[in-house]
Amino acid sequence: MELRARKLVVTGVLGILGAFAGGIAVAVQPEDSAGPARAASSVAMDDEIPPSAVEDFRYPGADRILAEKGIKLISGDGHILLAECGATADQIKLWSRKGDFCFQAKGSTGQLSLEAPDVWALETSTHPISAELTAEGETQSVDLPQDGYKLVGEGNREAPTTVVEIRVTG
């Protein structure tokens, strides 16, 4: 009995090592009336590598949002989320020729990298924010206090402006 148990353990360990090293799985069949346990035939595993468990902070559904709304959401910390305008009182709003884009802040700090083109005004309600903007190859930072509103780019009769980052600062 003890020898049989040892064989099962050794066979199982070898099967696991083989699966990790060579990409194959070894199954162990339970003992039946025909004799002791034996290794089943090897089966090739999928050639696909499973996705990494490391967080890359990419915005979920970004390709669909770009196609539907014309705004490119790149990455963030999860504390600034795209929302329906007017859905909550606590919103950050980008006024744009492509449409208005609203975000909900989920905390007192947050960061979102994006590309929102042709923005002409920024508005925030319960949180102060900082936004990075680009226009004609130049980058500038704009700070808005709580309940702030600011004209930018074409709103100030300047070049079209793209918002490339939003940060909740308090």
Rank of each mutant, 00 (worst) to 15 (best):
A40N: 05
S41N: 14
S41E: 15
S42H: 10
A44K: 13
D47G: 15
E48I: 14
I49T: 13
I49D: 09
I49G: 03
P50I: 07
P50V: 06
S52Y: 02
D56M: 13
F57N: 07
P60L: 04
G61R: 04
R64L: 14
I65F: 15
I65H: 07
E68N: 12
K69M: 06
G70I: 11
K72T: 07
L73R: 12
S75W: 12
D77L: 10
L81G: 09
L82W: 07
L82M: 03
C85Y: 02
C85W: 01
K93A: 05
K93W: 02
S96L: 14
K98H: 14
F101S: 01
F103L: 01
Q104V: 06
Q104K: 11
A105M: 06
T109V: 13
S113Q: 10
E115C: 09
E115R: 09
P117R: 15
P117S: 13
D118T: 05
E123S: 12
S125V: 09
H127G: 00
H127V: 03
P128A: 03
S130H: 02
S130E: 07
E132L: 01
E138V: 08
S141F: 05
V142Y: 14
V142K: 10
V142R: 07
D143F: 11
L144N: 06
P145T: 09
Q146Y: 14
Y149G: 06
K150S: 13
G153K: 03
G153S: 02
G155D: 02
N156E: 08
A159S: 10
T161H: 11
T161I: 08
T161C: 10
T161P: 07
E165Y: 00
E165W: 00
